[in-house]
Every structure is written in C-alpha cells, then in structure tokens.
C-alpha cells in the first residue's frame, strides 16, 4: 500500500521561458512537511499544481493517489488549503465565508457548530460577524486557516500560514497545527520562517530556481549543508588556555570567541557538550549555559541558497 498522500513525480510547469521543476518528492500520511525556498522559487506553483489549479506541463502530481486535475472533486475531498496572502471577499463576514466553504465541501448539518469550532480554533471567534474588509491582515490570515480547517480535513496545504501574524497569533496557530498533526493529520506547509519549520516539521524540501535542492529532515539538511553541529557556550572567566583546550576536544572543528562566550562547531553526530562543560568548570571558569546552536536551519538554508547543497 502506498502511504504517500502527496506525490510529485517529475512535475514541471513552464511559464514561457521560466521553468519550475522537475520536482520529485512525496509526503507520507501523518507528516508535517516544510516546503522551503526563496520568493519566486516555485513553491506556490507546486502547491497550485497539487490543488489542481494549475496544469503541469510535464510529469505527474498526485493528491491522495489521484490526479487533482482529472479527479479534482475526489482528490480535493478531505483537503484544506490556506493560500499565501489570502484574498477573501471583503463584503462577507467570517461566518459567511465559512458557511460558503462548508457548502463547497457538502457539509449540510452542524454548519454553525463547525463554523464556531474553527473560529475558536484559530482564535477569532469574537470577529465572526465582522466584515472581512474590516479585519486586520493577521485576522484574515487566521480566517484563511479557519476555512482550510472546516470539515476536519485529513490533509492541510498551507502556503505561508504564519505570514502577517503577531507572535501571539503565530503561537496560537503553531499549537493548532501540532494538535492537528497529533490527531493524525498531514500538513504540507511552505514557509520562510525557519524557526517555525524547524520546530514543527518532521521533514522538509528545499526548492530554489525551480529546482528541488534537498529532501529530508531539518537535521539532515543542517548536517549536509553546514557539515557540523553548533554549540553555544556562555561563561565568565574564559581564558585563552581554556579556549585552546576546547579547540582540542575530539570532534571540535572550529571555535569562535564572542563577547559573552564561544560558538563551537562540532562534527555532526558527536555530543561534545559534557566534555566541554567539564573542561570549563574544571579550569575554574563560571559556566552559565551550554546548548545547541540556534537557528541552525536558517543558517543552513542561507548557505544552501548561496552555494548549493552539493557544493556546501
């Protein structure tokens, strides 16, 4: 049995001279899949091919094992979509938008309850009767996610779902997506927010210039691109001798001194933190924190776009 919910098999889209693809990857049921790439790289085109809005020029795209163009109704059943910068009719209220979405998916009874549920889930229940034209950008973004969640779809396709949200909104949606995935849902989300992707996604793909550069986990991408893990050390009283000793620890590739500590690059897969911690405290310095480096995926992403995966 094929457990792939989403499948791109050499999918290509031509826009005159511009070519997106061939794109080749699949997303298994229950995965939260991060689709990364800079603006104009082809992420949205791939998503639109997946939803049957755009016809591939070559190759195949399958959603739930079906061709989303030929079997649009069947393929899109149980799929929710929230577009990047959602355009929603401004004369409607969120409740009306959701009622229309409910009729599109054939929800007949309990529309009110379902509407209230999804409005609650994205945190805009109190704006249910406000015209969309009077909502803030962040509220519209949440409404877009709400209409994707209506009818409890098994698969969510989210194009930049956190864009325009304030930190509270981001945190709210992040938790909603986690809950959705915990309940067995599959998510494909494109995002520029690497911390969100690193935090949420079980696997990722990177597309650049219309070409798929990478498919794997965030850790694999960091390892493959940067070739090392990073450790952040914050301590008082670090002498040059201690720094030299850290440089000699097995697996340490590079040590950079900063104002309040050290950034240590370590060969991927080696756990050097206990040794470094012992070394620092043993030499009489005061160790404040020692943790994994932050925003590693972001660093790997920028590096990959600059130099390409293979070169990196």
């Amino acid at each position: 049995m094929n457990a792939s919910v989403i499948e791109f098999a050499g999918a290509v889209k031509l826009y005159g001279e511009k070519r997106i693809g061939p794109v080749e990857f699949s997303v298994r049921r229950g995965e939260i899949f991060g689709f990364l790439g800079p603006n104009g790289s082809g992420k949205t085109t791939c998503i639109r091919m997946l939803l049957g809005l755009v016809r591939p020029s070559a190759g195949k795209v399958k959603l739930g094992g079906l061709d989303p163009i030929r079997n649009h109704t069947e393929a899109l059943t149980g799929v929710g979509y929230s577009p990047e910068l959602p355009n929603i009719q401004t004369f409607m209220t969120p409740k009306e938008v959701l009622a229309l979405a409910a009729s599109e998916i054939g929800l007949k009874s309990e529309v009110r309850a379902e509407t209230a549920r999804v409005l609650e889930e994205v945190g805009i229940i109190e704006y249910g009767d406000t015209k969309v034209g009077k909502l803030s950008k962040g509220m519209v973004q949440r409404l877009s996610v709400a209409q994707a969640l209506i009818g409890s779809p098994k698969t969510l396709v989210l194009d930049e779902p956190m864009i325009g949200l304030d930190p509270a909104g981001t945190a709210h949606l992040r938790e909603a997506f986690r809950e959705y995935a915990r309940n067995g849902g599959t998510i494909l989300m494109s995002s520029h927010m690497m911390t969100e992707v690193e935090d949420l996604c079980s696997s990722i793909a990177l597309i650049h210039g219309g070409k798929l550069l990478f498919r794997g986990t965030a850790k694999e991408m960091v390892s493959q691109v940067l070739g090392a893990d990073e450790i952040r050390v914050e301590a008082n009283g670090l002498s040059p001798a201690i720094v030299d000793a850290v440089r000699r620890v097995e697996g340490v590739l590079e040590v950079t001194e900063g104002a309040d500590g050290l950034d240590v690059k370590v060969r991927h897969g080696i756990e050097a933190r206990p040794t470094i911690a012992r070394l620092i405290t043993g030499a009489g310095a005061e160790l404040l924190t020692i943790r994994e480096g932050e925003r590693m995926l972001e660093k790997a992403y920028i590096e990959a776009l600059r130099n390409g995966i293979a070169k990196a």
């Binding site: 639109r48 939803l51 049957g52 809005l53 649009h72 109704t73 069947e74 393929a75 899109l76 059943t77 149980g78 799929v79 979509y81 577009p83 959602p86 355009n87 929603i88 229309l100 979405a101 599109e104 998916i105 054939g106 877009s144 209409q147 396709v157």
Partner: peptide
C-alpha cells in the same frame, strides 16, 4: 483560487 481549491 480559494473557491476552486475545494472538492468542487
């Protein structure tokens, strides 16, 4: 786009 990315 939003209206057509549904099972219709």
């Amino acid at each position: 786009e939003l209206l057509l990315a549904k099972p219709v």
